[in-house]
């Protein structure tokens, strides 16, 4: 990686990020919005990457994710925990995310894992939890909320 790439790799999340971090006494919540449920899932993933400090929009390995569950909220928790698992065992940063389809019982998409990136700049996350989990339609789009145990 040359200096320019490294600089680009440290760039902040997209300015128009559709997520915000929610105050919590000990942990961290993510509220994410998108015109579609898929977009809201993507924004929640960016929120997770922001908390971990591992967003590096660089080329890397694309890893497909397909998960089955019982409802969209459970799928969101499963999706974020899958990303967390991949980040931890591959020791990789996150270079991209696309959620292609969220159905009632299935989510499909991919993430880009960037190996050998700089050390995470954020806090360690143990897991995405089911606490105050929320998936709702709002103003013609979708809103999701999820809390992380940090």
């Amino acid at each position: 990686m040359d200096a320019d790439q490294a600089s680009q790799g440290r760039s902040q999340l997209p300015r128009a990020a559709g997520f915000e971090l929610l105050e919590h006494t000990a942990d961290v919540g993510i509220r994410a919005r998108g015109p579609t449920l898929e977009a809201a899932f993507e924004q929640a993933t960016l929120g997770l990457a922001d908390v971990l400090g591992v967003w590096r929009p660089l080329p890397g390995e694309r890893v497909e994710i397909a998960l089955e569950g019982d409802d969209p909220g459970g799928l969101l928790v499963d999706w974020l925990n899958e990303v967390l698992y991949l980040h931890e065992v591959r020791e990789a940063a996150l270079g991209g995310v696309q959620v292609q389809r969220v159905a009632d019982r299935r989510v499909d998409g991919w993430v880009v894992l960037v190996a050998g990136a700089e050390a995470p700049e954020g806090i360690s996350v143990k897991a995405a939890t089911w606490h105050h989990l929320r998936v709702a339609q709002e103003g013609g789009g979708w809103l999701v909320e999820v809390y992380l145990d940090v």
């Binding site: 919590h24 006494t25 809390y147």
Partner: peptide
């Protein structure tokens, strides 16, 4: 005690 995620800490 303080707020946790489900159970209080």
């Amino acid at each position: 005690v303080h707020r946790g995620y489900g159970f209080p800490v």
